[in-house]
Design a protein around this nucleic acid. Structure first.
Lengths: 345, 345
DNA sequence: CTGAAAGCGCTTACAG
DNA sequence: CTGAAAGCGCTTACAG
């Protein structure tokens, strides 16, 4: 094969058809394995396959998508891709999508509503067949527009319970309740809760679960409940920890409602010379690679990330294929991982 | 607007053209802001814009790409997306690409050659305009095929020095030499080096830099040099650390050549009850979130990830736009971060 | 068993 | 100032 410095001319179906003196329809059929009913003779079929290989034919997916009206592409909109939980979620979604023959285009909103709108429009123009979204705060209208237009859509991790939209989430309230009980079982009586100050249903459910558990055990103390701002995470967590540590009666346990809060919380505790799991028992949300490095283990709530990813992809593809209009809200169970040596992911 | 349960019919250029009784050519021109020479009257222009907004017109990028022969999409092929270094690299590449109006499709090879081939073909069919690749071992032929076909391409982080291919890498040898000298300056005299057993030029350059520094200081000891396998990282690092720690003369410093080795090395040291930065001084490659959590700081080599991403995108887009045939190998300087309090990323 | 033709939604010379 | 027409590379009824 001679190698030209200039751009080689593209090999299309037509090129193959012309070289073989057949129609491009026949070539298309053979190359797509659609000559079921023995439409094309074995011999011709062989010749077409060989020629395609010889010419190094690469099909043009764009043209195919344009013709059939499906791109086999899905848009994945993530709120904060630098967060390890979302990173893992994206990884699994991509991997399951690939298994099903779909390409994923990832967009990152950085928790900004206008970014989310921009990305949705961008992906719509790219003709994605559907969306998997971890919605930002106050994006109800945006989500609603998509559902009204009947665009296949699944929310994951977060959802708006008031909207009729498919979702995959976990049992945030129940698992947080249970996790807090675990702290109580360990003997903690002055338990702090650090959560975000925001509108996200899932995070507020976690907080509610923790608070409810404390109340039901008669040890709820509003001074031990803190809310931090996403944009001032580090400072606010620091302040909250210092306050809790310096209360008249020092806290002996903390429940963190997200992994970003957990990481900053642990740093803060170390900076305050608190001996973790001795002075203060912790309970975190999500597995965290940073914790592996500590000489002790920290209990955490493990979300079924892989299963969430799989379910989200399944739901979405069902909608794409069947135009399934049924509303499905999946709630999966998270798991408490305590004491035992933390397993590698 | 009435909301139908059925799929709404798509709004195309033609829809707008028909409703307004003009040609779709004119609509295209206006919507793309290409009526420079006052081709279209202000009034008609206005009407077209309004109608597009009213109908909620979304252009079909697929059709446009097919027509103009450019997809404004680039394929990013990453060797191991779960590695934080690559994660950050991917994030920045995506962000720069977006700024330039390009979409990124990410593929993950898991360091497997056949995965890499598969992903390349897949992305080629998707008509990507070019590739940014962190190549796996032994992928020279694959890379060569792409360059021979004149497909815009930039290798990043890793490269094959023998190939004529654009690349963005760092000064692996020099910075590793310097980093090792730093350990020596601190008083270490029995310094271990843990690296991968593989063919990657960049990692071997790091090892070579460290070894050379040790030799030039007259303190090189082959017993302190270990190579670990990628597929048995944890076990091999563990074994290497234990061996080094239990040598007749215990090591007092270690240089890790990658961040994955660093993380496992630190865990191993903690398991062996070594007091890091007191019993043994460390030097790692790459910033690592896990280290933030430790009560002391670990010196590390900071790669200019953002700059690498930017340069890679710039080089690639130059090639795409100008069909620039010039060969460019960029080598950027990494930075030594010592002692000082580690800054937040 | 196979081919001719239409059409997906665009853009871009070309003609007027 | 504007329109008609061709064509990007496919797939899919339809006709034979």
């Amino acid at each position: 094969m001679i190698q030209l410095k200039e751009k080689m001319k593209k090999i299309s179906l037509k090129t193959i058809a012309n070289e073989l003196g057949v129609s491009s329809a026949t070539v298309s059929l053979v190359l797509n394995g659609k000559d079921k009913n023995g439409r094309v003779s074995k011999e011709l079929s062989r010749k077409i396959l060989d020629k395609a290989a010889e010419l190094n034919y690469v099909p043009n997916t764009l043209a195919k998508s344009l013709k059939v009206g499906k791109s086999r592409t899905i848009g994945l909109i993530i709120a904060d891709i630098s967060n390890l939980f979302f990173g893992a979620l994206a990884l699994h979604i991509q991997s399951f999508a690939q298994q099903k023959g779909y390409t994923v285009i990832i967009g990152n909103t950085n928790e900004k509503l206008n970014e989310m709108e921009h990305i949705i429009n961008f992906l719509l123009a790219r003709q994605v067949d559907g969306f998997i979204i971890t919605p930002t705060e106050k994006s109800q209208n945006l989500i609603n527009k998509l559902t009204v237009s009947n665009i296949p859509l699944v929310l994951v991790d977060r959802t708006f319970p008031e909207l009729k939209v498919n979702s995959v989430t976990i049992n945030n309230y129940e698992i947080s309740y249970k996790a807090t009980e675990e702290l109580i079982k360990k003997g903690c009586r002055n338990i702090g809760v650090i959560s975000y100050k925001q509108d996200h249903f899932h995070v507020n459910e976690r907080k509610r679960g923790a608070v409810e558990a404390l109340k039901n055990s008669g040890i709820f103390n509003p001074n031990y409940i803190a809310e931090v701002r996403y944009d001032f995470l580090k400072e606010d967590v620091s302040a909250a920890i210092e306050k809790m540590v310096n209360e008249n009666i020092r806290i002996d346990g903390i429940f963190f409602t997200t992994n970003s809060i957990s990481i900053n919380g642990v740093k803060s505790l170390i900076n305050n010379n608190i001996i973790i799991q001795k002075d203060i028992q912790l309970m975190c949300f999500d597995e965290n690679d940073a914790f592996y490095i500590l000489p002790y283990t920290i209990p955490f709530i493990k979300q079924p990330i892989k299963e969430m990813a799989e379910k989200a992809i399944d739901l979405l593809i069902e909608q794409i294929d069947d135009n399934n209009n049924e509303l499905i809200k999946v709630i999966q169970d998270a798991e408490l991982v305590t004491n035992e040596k933390i397993v590698d992911q």
